[in-house]
Design a binder for these strands. Structure first.
Lengths: 280, 280
DNA sequence: CGCTGTCTTGAACTGTCTCAACCATGGTGG
DNA sequence: CCACCATGGTTGAGACAGTTCAAGACAGCG
């Protein structure tokens, strides 16, 4: 299952690159997008920055809760592994999001978290949270804000998974992802997915083959353009309209997914262009 | 859709029964199960108790965010309605849980919340949150705790919906519900579902007929006992084992759900016993 | 180079959706 | 009081979509 996983949690040598800068409150507020009333706090707070390489595990499922994290850079996968080895992905997290908030009310982490690419997080020891919250009201606000946003995300995900058709699930996922990318200041219509088909499939609750097929279907409809993990959204309005389908679209829409247009609207390009990347 | 809905939000006359007691901090901490370090706060805080009757709406989707709620009694349904009228249930909330936490980071409620039975909530105006958090550290802790718990719930739900087989989804739902009932001090093995099949179906992401069939299947397996909305868990371990099935159970387990035992293990009783309620 | 892992595509099976009855209940009003 | 209707739950039958098994293409890596 786990591909390369060189250092569990952080096997000794990770600590080398770990401890580094101590951030300011203003920095964290800006990172998390917390709307703060009194932007007074240029206070330095004792959170360290930890770097992780692709595939490295930040927290293990069942480990004692010792810290909270704020994603500075990179992408994370939040997942649970049941005893038969199946990996259930519960969320993906990117810059500005909090990790481990759901563990605050328990003794051990209910989920595992790993980095999908080279990433970095600010580490806030649990023991510091009460004192920080009291000393810096902005910190408490930030925690509230991030927790709230994470819950909203999770609720959105429930909405995504509730869609019947797999193409609709994928469309909703892409739209959510697009909005998140925009929130990070990146292009909402052209991005590189940091996760594999299998992980998307797990999140969406379908087989990975189905995700593959759904990608090609959406592409055949002219809504998106896909080249491996590189995704371009060609028709955002159309994609949004497609994503709105709930039950039986009532009329035509079911024809479109019956079979691909048959007249290769795709320029018959091989799956991996090898050279030209996702023509604009 | 909405059955009787006499007062939208609270159409004037609801305010009559609304305003009442002002709670103490200790009361709320106990209600929400917040582990507090210094149980000093017997402080009285300005939160009012609001009563709702069955079917009444606490917040409307899209309404401006003005308050946060803590469930004192009853059951609530958190849901979203898309433009074609389909109601997507995102969660159920019971005693001790926070409502509206996901709205803290936005201007308007992303979801609607309605009472499934006669219920009561403590109302905390949003404008009071910063001052309360600063004046009473325990309040901030409580908010954190409840928000964290709600997120954990939502993540669990994702796990529930990720299950392939509908019976497994239902089994997981029942187990989660059972644990929640236990947390409230109620019996974990015998409870009355406050929501209809259609609402469970929406939450689980299946058709309501499928929920019905799954109920009968689980009952036929001897794992539970169902009589309309009254549910008894006969074999918690068996149910938990059944709920663990992820993908293709590998061997036998698929036989059990192939067809009901055929030898009516159910005493041929009509759906509604009319007199004897769910024999022990 | 062969290996491994990811992604894609094909074909058959099967579970769930959908449509359709049916029954029981509860409320309404003649 | 009972006919009537609306609601909620159950069950059956057919069709379709997704899972599953299987194969193949391609890239990265030792």
């Amino acid at each position: 299952m786990s591909r390369r996983n060189p250092s569990q949690t952080h096997g000794g040598q990770a600590d080398r690159t770990a401890r580094s800068a101590v951030s300011t409150m203003a920095d964290l507020l800006q990172l998390t997008g917390t709307p703060v009333e009194r932007p007074q706090a240029a206070e330095r707070i004792p959170v360290v920055l930890r770097h992780l390489h692709a595939g490295e595990c930040l927290v293990l499922e069942g480990a004692p809760v010792d810290a909270l994290f704020f994603v500075r850079a990179g992408t994370f996968k939040i997942f649970r592994t049941d005893e038969d080895g199946y990996e259930q992905v519960l969320a993906f997290a990117i810059r500005g999001e909090v990790l481990g908030f759901d563990a605050l009310c328990m003794a051990s982490y209910p989920v595992a978290i790993s980095a999908l690419e080279a990433s970095a997080v600010h580490v806030v020891p649990c023991s510091d949270i009460p004192s920080l919250s009291q000393a810096l009201p902005a910190f408490g606000q930030m925690l509230q804000h991030c927790g709230s946003r994470t819950l909203a995300h999770s609720r959105e995900l429930v909405d995504i998974m509730a869609a019947v058709a797999s193409e609709v699930r994928l469309a909703r996922f892409l739209i959510q992802h697009s909005r998140r990318m925009a929130d990070c200041g990146l292009s909402p219509s052209r991005f590189l997915l940091r996760m594999g088909r299998r992980e998307i499939a797990s999140l969406l609750g379908v087989a990975h083959e189905t995700v593959s097929r759904s990608f090609t279907t959406l592409a055949a409809l002219g809504l998106i353009q896909v080249c491996d993990r590189e995704v371009g959204i060609r028709d955002m309005d159309g994609l949004a309209a497609f994503a709105r389908s709930t039950r039986r679209p009532m009329d035509a829409p079911l024809i479109v997914r019956a079979r691909l247009p048959a007249n290769g609207s795709m320029p018959a390009q091989s799956r991996r262009p090898t050279v030209h990347r996702l023509a604009a």
